[in-house]
Nucleic acid binder design. Structure first.
Length: 543
RNA sequence: GGCCCCGUCGUCUAGCGGUUAGGACACAGGCCUUUCAAGCCUGCGACGCGGGUUCGAGUCCCGUCGGGGUCACCA
């Protein structure tokens, strides 16, 4: 492979200009959901690369999409990264010379730069209405053309444009992409990548609500934060042309680009929560060690420090990674995120712990004061001897198995669900669909409180949602959460189990039941849509 | 579908023109042990395919196939 060559040789010509420039890297997660293992992966690589070069690692919060913002998500990102030991040098909560580090607090900066870009002629206002755009799209689709903006407003007279904007006419701002030719971006791992003009379009830089899109905010911030290396996931490659054009439109130096391979599901698709637990917090709650998860993540694309015999040492800590990791050596095949291997790696770290540290780890994991108190509150009314404590509460501490003991060693499709997971008269498939609806609703739920849980779940036990009776749904949910048909109050129990583990168990149960085929899924989506419509049309009052 | 990226055991990877293609997970067998883990040993198992270049290609080039990503007023 030619990776080494590109890493070393292709960066040599610009080493002079780079040498003046301290290494600064960043991650820019958006607070739209649970802190993602992909964020941890990119955080690790970015932090390691920065530290190796005596540089800084910046955390920026990418919250320019107000519609997708989820309350509490930002705090969880901090918490998750800190738990992993991926500490940043500058960020929203600890400041830094270039702040603010939350994009929603930088709107004035973006506005200024929008004006600047407009003046420089790199961008233009677009007054096209959503209706016109929809129509355009429909026409293009009918003609089987690629759907893209037709640059209708690109040549609008600047004065007229300014006048209409001043008059308050709604508009977006678009980037002038090259009308022909191609844009070549240099990737640290892949060398030059030529992106062709035919699939460019004049990207929206500023939305009608005045907020910048990712492209705009990210380029401005990367420049202003003096980011030297943009190390991000492979899915961004096709946007790289837009970014390069933007940097050039501003007249700014382009940082070094490095696109890391994407973490994958077992079927090689991009890692997703449907097919894998993706929340960092899930791994914490499941009892993985930061060192274990970090070690495993480091193995995605890298072999580990070399042994004298030429093989790689697979079990190592952050210190060894800091010493031996080379960004230029990352391999490009999309690594499958394999839970089995993660467990093994974590096991090695766990067993290597000094016994005192192990005791502390268990204490913190199982018997944190606050947790113990809350579990006891639920256990006390239900026990006659202390010996029964674990009988009543084990699912707060241990793992939950949804498959019957006889089948639990078999491959997933052959396992049989424990009693109660699939109610009498329902099929595995129906149960999967019901749980899918629950999953969607609970995923959005914040805070994860028993009252909110109950309210949400009750609403789902309805004709227009699952079509299930509360009894059925709640029992299934109880078994999902506890692996048993009897437990303390379902919603108190769920609250205490917590969102990461609760959602994890939901996912586990769904994986056991088996995801229906694509056709069935489609059919089901349609039926569900129809149910909702008829419920709405029937005058049902819904919140 | 257009464009782009990628392609070594089922999985994670080493390899950087000359290797019996190495290690790890998983799996199978064995040793150890009262048992189970752990540990140790052994086994199974890969360069997608086809052309070139070369004395010699997993390594370089081209094609092909396969996988993935992306085509938003989301990031």
């Amino acid at each position: 492979m030619r990776r080494g060559l590109h890493g070393v040789e292709s960066s040599r010509p610009r080493r002079q200009s780079m040498s003046e420039r301290p290494v600064r890297t960043r991650i820019a997660p958006s607070p739209t959901g649970d802190p993602h293992v992909g964020t941890a992966y990119m955080g690790l690589v970015n932090m390691v690369h920065a530290r190796q070069h005596g540089g800084s690692f910046v955390l920026r919060i990418d919250d320019t999409d107000r519609t997708r913002y989820r309350h509490g998500s930002e705090e969880q990102i901090f918490e998750a990264l800190r738990w992993l030991g991926l500490e940043w040098d500058e960020g929203p909560d600890k400041g830094g010379a270039k702040g603010p580090y939350r994009q929603s607090e930088r709107t004035a900066i973006y506005r200024e730069h929008t004006e600047l870009l407009l003046e420089r002629g790199g961008a233009y206002r677009c007054f096209c209405t959503p209706e016109r755009l929809a129509k355009l799209r429909a026409e293009q689709q009918a003609r089987k053309e690629r759907t893209r903006y037709d640059n209708h407003c690109r040549e609008l007279d600047p004065e007229e444009s300014a006048r209409r904007a001043a008059a308050g006419e709604p508009h977006v701002v678009r980037l002038k992409m090259p009308l022909e030719g191609s844009v070549v971006v240099e990737d640290l791992l892949r060398g030059p990548i030529e992106l062709k003009q035919d699939n460019f379009q004049d990207q929206v830089l500023v939305k009608q609500d005045g907020f910048p899109t990712y492209h705009m905010a990210s380029v401005i911030d990367d420049h202003l934060f003096e980011i030297s290396h943009i190390i991000r996931a492979e899915e961004w490659i096709s946007s790289a042309a837009t970014h390069k054009v933007l940097f050039e439109a501003f007249g700014w130096e382009m940082p070094v680009l490095c696109h890391m391979p994407l973490l994958r599901n077992h079927d090689k698709s991009k890692i997703s929560k449907r097919k894998n637990p993706t929340s960092i917090l899930y791994y914490r709650e499941a009892g993985f060690l930061p060192a274990g998860l970090l070690n495993f993540l480091a193995l995605m694309g890298w072999g580990g420090p070399k042994n004298p015999d030429g093989s790689c040492e697979e079990i190592f800590g952050l210190d060894a990674m800091l010493e031996h990791f080379r960004l230029e050596e990352v391999s490009l095949g999309g690594p499958v995120f394999d839970l089995e291997k993660l467990r093994y790696v974590n096991g090695r770290h766990l067993r290597a712990l000094p016994s005192d540290a192990y005791v502390e780890a268990v204490r913190g994991y199982l018997f944190a004061e606050d947790k113990l108190r809350r579990v006891c509150a639920l256990a006390q009314p239900r026990t006659e001897t202390l010996g029964e404590f674990l009988d009543v509460t084990s699912f707060f501490f241990g793992r939950v198995e949804h498959a019957t003991p006889e089948t639990r060693k078999r491959p997933l499709p052959e396992r049989e669900p424990v009693a109660g997971l699939v109610p009498k008269g329902r099929s595995k498939e129906e149960t999967w669909f019901a749980l899918r609806i629950v999953q969607e609703a609970l995923d959005r739920l914040d805070p994860w409180h028993h009252e909110a849980l109950e309210e949400t779940c009750r609403a789902l036990a309805s004709e227009e949602e699952t079509g299930w009776k509360a009894r059925e749904l709640f029992m299934t949910l109880r078994v999902v959460m506890t692996g048993r048909t009897e437990s303390p109050g379902l919603f108190e129990t769920m609250e205490l189990i917590g969102k990461p583990r609760g959602m994890g168990r939901l996912g586990d149960a769904m994986r056991l039941l088996g995801e229906p085929g694509k056709k069935k899924l489609k059919k089901w989506e349609k039926a569900r849509e129809a149910r909702r419509r008829s419920a709405a049309g029937g005058g049902a009052v819904r919140a």
